[in-house]
Amino acid sequence: MCGLFGHRWTTHGAGSQRQLVEQLQSVYRMLERGILKSERVLSAMLATDRALYTDRSPYTDAPQPIGQKATISAPHMHAYALELLADHLRDGASILDVGSGSGFLTACFARMVGSTGRVVGVEHVWRLARRSTENVRRDDPNLLGNGCLRFVVGDGVLGWAEGAPYDAIHVGAAACKVPPKLVEQLRNGGRLLVPVGRPGRAQWLTQVDKKPDGSVSSRKMTTVTFVPLTESRHSQ
């Protein structure tokens, strides 16, 4: 996966989550991109140790395979997504994470919305849903025990109607178009973040905002490369 704005970045020598985050701050400060600018995002990323969610070079700023043809995104992509959604990740908010994968970003969401918030991670591969639950349990079992966070098996294209409406929806895989069901499940005033593009073609991380009156606008944020969003009938 290419980095933001077409760059590839590798954090050299990072031996801990703190060192990784500090290097991300340093690199993107020099670029004047402001990737990590919120204390709330910084705190969530520092509290969520990537080594608990992947055993493949966890502190390198690059995507890593997690099995089942899925990947965990590069840390800078997680930071970028958290910053774009930060205003919607307030205490008590309801969040949907489609294609939750390893559960890393889902755990960050849970930390940012607090114990009164609700976060649902949707995975079409039951093995990944089970593994992400185990990852979070090793990280902080209270996130699961207090009912703030749960993982379900389902078709991400259809979202998860049971928990709707959501203040924010994040999609961790590329859709050919913005899934209509996800827009429907977004609360008025909410935000959807989804990579859009067909396999082998340019993909755009797309921000979809539903205004208070229910009207919808979208904005292309940056080019990205994600694995395809796969429907549940293709799961194993």
Rank of each mutant, 00 (worst) to 15 (best):
T223V: 04
V171P: 07
L144D: 10
A93P: 00
A168K: 06
R118S: 15
L144R: 10
R118G: 11
L192D: 05
Y53V: 00
N135M: 00
N135A: 09
E32R: 15
R201G: 14
D97M: 07
V196S: 01
G172I: 07
T10Q: 09
G114M: 08
F151A: 02
Q207D: 09
D49F: 10
V119G: 08
G200I: 11
Q203Y: 15
M1Y: 15
V171T: 08
K69C: 06
G214T: 02
H88G: 10
G147D: 07
R138S: 13
L149W: 00
H170W: 10
V216M: 05
Y166S: 08
S115N: 10
I66W: 02
F5V: 02
H124R: 03
G154A: 09
R90Y: 12
P141I: 03
H78Y: 00
R219W: 06
L158M: 12
W126K: 14
F226N: 05
S115K: 10
R138P: 10
T71V: 08
L84D: 05
Q68K: 04
Y80S: 12
P65W: 02
R40P: 05
C148M: 10
V227Y: 04
G147K: 06
T116I: 05
V183G: 14
G200D: 05
P199E: 15
V119S: 07
T71I: 08
G34M: 01
R138Q: 12
R33Y: 01
R187D: 03
R29E: 13
M30A: 15
L149S: 01
L52V: 05
L144T: 06
N135C: 04
V41L: 08
C108P: 03
S38A: 15
